[in-house]
Design a protein around this nucleic acid. Structure first.
Length: 349
DNA sequence: AAGCCGGGGAG
DNA sequence: CTCCCAGGCTT
């Protein structure tokens, strides 16, 4: 039996039931694919369910504010996905009459939709024979065909895309694409694949050469940048006597764009109370009496894929009337990074 | 072509 | 700890 037929047969017996699986609604498939970019199914599924509940159609999503979308996206990471999701929803709802493009070529023009996602939507919703090549497919192809080309340079990705196109099942592209991804996720797993019990083990080149563990080949790892964040957490009473604080929206490029955070002092290294006091005026217009206290003695290390954030939270009690102060209870309305959400949860206890 | 962009789970 | 996840965008 051919490679694709084995994949199809395996898929028919092993596919998981997932909330979006079975649907041909391009809105739901698009939504699930954006959520699942670089994200495990287990992590993304609750977000998919939330989004579908809040926004049953692309027009519902388009009519929401970006703030609402980011808030629902909070904790999932790669926040440009949420911004692009909202921009594309508006385009589809308001410029394209609520109707998604139905071809790979047109889908590729949407923000946040690249080769993989366009192929997935085109094949799953419209039966267009476009092969998907995601992390799972790279792994399955690299092992089965014994290819040691790096998967993450331009030549490698072109090579694998061409190979994927040659072996795809054009007549069953919808199930085949989902099948090879599912096969990679469950059977041909990154670590400790159970090759003894694999339906492809008679013809898998990597297994025959005993190099399953070495494939796929991936170039270099990202260098980690170390940063020192000092969040100033203003505490003041507002006119109603409620404890209030201050948030700023990150507008610059870089991490967490358009999310909210406390006034931030970034430093070259770990700094102490006197250095903090000297720099407070850079971000907080305090007058009158104030008192600064360190919340966490040792920095909280928040790890992103390529940045380690050594973070201290400084509580700044003040009788200054801060313009734009937010009642502490209203913090939950704002989309904040997990680093801040964890602090807020701890501090409120 | 290389760098940037999150957070979490598995081993 | 390391690896990597239904990738895409920017420079």
């Amino acid at each position: 039996m051919s490679f694709s037929k084995i994949i199809l047969q395996w898929y028919s017996g092993h596919k998981r039931t997932l909330p979006w699986r079975g649907s041909r609604d391009p809105y739901k498939i698009w939504l699930s694919e954006i959520i699942l970019q670089q994200t495990r199914v287990a992590q993304g599924t609750p977000y998919y369910l939330k989004f579908v509940e809040h926004f049953p159609t692309v027009t519902d999503l388009a009519m929401a504010s970006e703030a609402q979308v980011l808030k629902l996206w909070q904790g999932l990471g790669y926040y440009s996905r949420a911004r692009n999701l909202h921009a594309t929803a508006k385009k589809v709802a308001f410029d394209l009459g609520g109707k998604f493009p139905s071809t790979y070529e047109e889908l590729m023009k949407l923000k946040g939709v690249g080769d993989y996602t366009a192929s997935a939507i085109a094949s799953i919703c419209f039966d267009e024979p476009q092969p998907v090549v995601d992390g799972n497919v790279y792994r399955v192809l690299a092992r089965y065909f014994g290819i040691d080309k790096p998967i993450n340079d331009s030549k490698g990705s072109t090579y694998f895309k061409r190979l994927a196109r040659e072996i795809m099942d054009v007549e069953n592209i919808r199930d085949y694409n989902q099948g090879i991804m599912e096969f990679g996720a469950i059977q041909c797993a990154p670590q400790n694949p159970y090759c003894l019990h694999c339906p492809l083990n008679q013809s898998c080149v990597a297994l025959q050469k005993n190099v399953v563990k070495e494939l796929p080949v991936k170039l270099k790892k990202t260098k980690v940048r170390h940063r020192y964040f000092n969040y100033l957490v203003p505490i003041t009473k507002n006119e109603n006597g409620a404890n209030s604080t201050l948030l700023r929206q990150r507008k610059s490029k870089g991490i967490w764009q358009n999310l909210w955070e406390f006034p931030l002092l970034e430093s070259e290294g770990d700094i102490d109370l006197s250095q903090i006091k000297a720099r407070i005026p850079e971000v907080l217009p305090l007058h009158g009496n104030s008192e600064v206290e360190l919340f966490n003695e040792s920095p909280i290390v928040h790890k992103l894929s390529h940045q380690h954030l050594y973070t201290k939270f400084w509580i700044v009690q003040s009788n200054t009337d801060l313009t734009g102060a937010i009642p502490f209870d209203a913090l939950e309305e704002y989309a904040v990074p997990v680093l801040l959400a964890d602090f807020i949860k701890t501090y409120k206890i």
